[in-house]
């Protein structure tokens, strides 16, 4: 059965996806400065997938891609943790060392600088990838069951 909504809804969805994803990426990237981080930003981006499923009625052929993205995010998270094993596991080896995310943090109250923090923003990005994919998969699996149950009900009624 075709569960698409009308053309107006689909067009507005196409426009609305962009601010939601941008807001989610902002929450993920600034996790070490303001409240937010990997899980919260990932949940916001997953709500855009929920909007897509409601408007279009299907996710297309992308189910296996989501599963691989989820596994990729978590593998990179554990690899970054294992890279600091020279001292201990989960050691922050990028903090204050220059390079990617390695600036120095001024003492006391400051407007936040994004280029600090070491491995923490990297781990936020990987966790954000994983949470997005995982929550989207959960919403898609539950919607599939609901669509099946509802099409059986509609056939019985007619």
């Amino acid at each position: 059965m075709n569960w698409k909504m009308s053309r107006i809804v689909r067009t507005v969805t196409n426009f609305l996806i962009v601010p939601i994803i941008v807001y989610g990426i902002y929450l993920v990237l600034h996790g070490h400065l303001t409240p937010g981080g990997g899980f919260q930003g990932g949940a916001v981006i997953a709500s855009s997938t929920a909007l897509l499923i409601i408007a279009y009625g299907t996710l297309g052929e992308h189910e296996k891609d989501l599963s691989s993205v989820e596994a990729l995010g978590l593998t990179l998270f554990i690899l970054i943790a294992l890279l600091g094993i020279g001292t201990t596991m989960f050691y922050n080896f990028l903090a204050g060392a220059g390079g990617v995310f390695g600036g120095t943090i001024p003492e006391g109250i400051n407007p936040g600088y994004i280029n600090t923090g070491g491995t923490v923003p990297l781990m936020n990005i990987f966790v954000g990838l994983e949470v997005t994919a995982a929550l989207s998969l959960i919403i898609w699996m539950m919607s599939k069951e609901t669509f099946v149950i509802n099409s059986e009900k509609k056939e019985v009624k007619d």
Partner: peptide, 25 residues
């Protein structure tokens, strides 16, 4: 306990907030 544009440097210890985030997930 947020340093970005805070009001003063007297802050609570954020241990309990970390435990709560884990529990929500």
């Amino acid at each position: 306990p947020i340093f970005t544009s805070a009001e003063s440097t007297e802050m609570v210890m954020p241990t309990a907030h970390a435990l709560t985030l884990t529990s929500i997930v």
